[in-house]
Each structure stands twice: as structure tokens, then as C-alpha cells.
Design a protein around this nucleic acid. Sequence first.
DNA 1: ACTTACAGTAAGCTATGACTTACGAACAAG
DNA 2: CTTGTTCGTAAGTCATAGCTTACTGTAAGT
Lengths: 103, 103
Amino acid sequence: MTYEQALTALADPTRRHIFEALRDHPKTVGELALTQPVSRPAVSQHLKVLQSAQLVSVKPKGNKRLYAVKREGLEELRSYLDSFWSDVLSAYSAEIAKRVDNN
Amino acid sequence: MTYEQALTALADPTRRHIFEALRDHPKTVGELALTQPVSRPAVSQHLKVLQSAQLVSVKPKGNKRLYAVKREGLEELRSYLDSFWSDVLSAYSAEIAKRVDNN
DNA sequence: ACTTACAGTAAGCTATGACTTACGAACAAG
DNA sequence: CTTGTTCGTAAGTCATAGCTTACTGTAAGT
């Protein structure tokens, strides 16, 4: 269910950039906004989407809010791709088998 | 470079459904359109996007055109997620190490 | 207490993308 | 060669998603 939200979340370029900016270590909204070409409220809105997609987590740190990458969303998306992967492979081997039968 | 296109391609629900309809075996545009709630030209347009994202391939079969799942796009997307994965894990262990240092 | 810093929410604008209908091209069939 | 499928493209409509400015709230600093 969440892999769909993860896909739509990571589809937007700026949102993806924000997400990637959290690769190494957690950052605040203000810090993130500095590295992005959009306004701070825009970053907030993007973080909201990322959060509902289980891709980031928040931890209030006094006045600020620390955003960090969360594993759940990534895992969901990964397993979705993996299921697809095996399907494609099995379909491929089925095709091979069919050709063998035709000989 | 392609993983971005793959993300935006799979972000749209109907386009994702079309893609998933090709899981087991290749289909023609008409066959795909029957299973979808949109018109046939819409399916064609979606297939064009999926194709440029390296997610599907076409093989002309007389009058018709057979669309099938292609591995390239999936591989790109998978490796992108994987790179992210390791980054998250290393950041996590770095955090652990930092806490250990603080004791 | 008041002021400043930080962040989320509301409202409104705009561009883009997903859809439709209409048309054109290519191959098949009769 | 004419008719019928099958599909892609063009043009135009409409909804949505992303952005901005303005505001509201909350915690810290003085």
C-alpha cells in the first residue's frame, strides 16, 4: 500500500532532492531549504508528503525539527520491485521453455 | 539518469496498472486497453512514457504491436534504491558509533 | 514579558500532465 | 483496390500538484 505513495513521493524532482539531501545525516527544515531552489514552506510541504510515504521521520529538537531518512518506505518500494523482478524472470524462462517446446 | 524517468513513469496509477498487466506475458495495445478504464489512445501515450523509461519494449507483430516488460528500467531503479539503502545503513551505523563515543 | 527564530498551515495562482475525440498511417483480408 | 483492424499522433480540455505569500503557533533568548 505504501509503495504507491513512495513512488509518487520520489517522482517529484525537488522532493527527491530533499530526500537525497538526508542521505548522510538528519537535517532541519531550514537547512534543507538552503540547499533547495524553493521556499521553506515548499520544503515543509514536501516533507509532509515524504513522511506520509514512510520515507522520512521527524524528531523535535527544541525549537527545530530534525528530519531523517526512514527505512519503511524504502523497504516497501524495494519489495515491490523485487516481486516484479521475479515475475519478469519467470516470464522470461517460461518464454524460453515455450521456444524449446516448439523445436 | 533513467531511474528518474522510471520513478515518474511508475508514479501514475493507470500507467502502473498497465505496466503490471504485462507481468506474466506480452500484450497488444488493444488487449491492454480492455483491462483499463481509459481509452486506447491513452494507453498508447502511457506506453510511450514507459518505453522512454526503458520499462517496456515493443515488437511489431504484423498489424499489432506486442509490448513486454523490459529489465533495464527496473535495474536502474533498483540500483538507485540500493545505493540509497547502503547510505542509510552506513549513516545508521555512524550514528551508533557516535553514541558509543559519547559514553 | 516581549522579541526573535523556526516551522507548519491556509489560500490562491499557474503550469503540467492525463484524458478525450478526431485524424492519419500501415498492414491484413476480401 | 477497397474495406477493416490496429495503432500512433494532434489538438484541445480539465484537474491536480507544486509553488508563493501571508498567517499562526511554539519554543528560545533577553
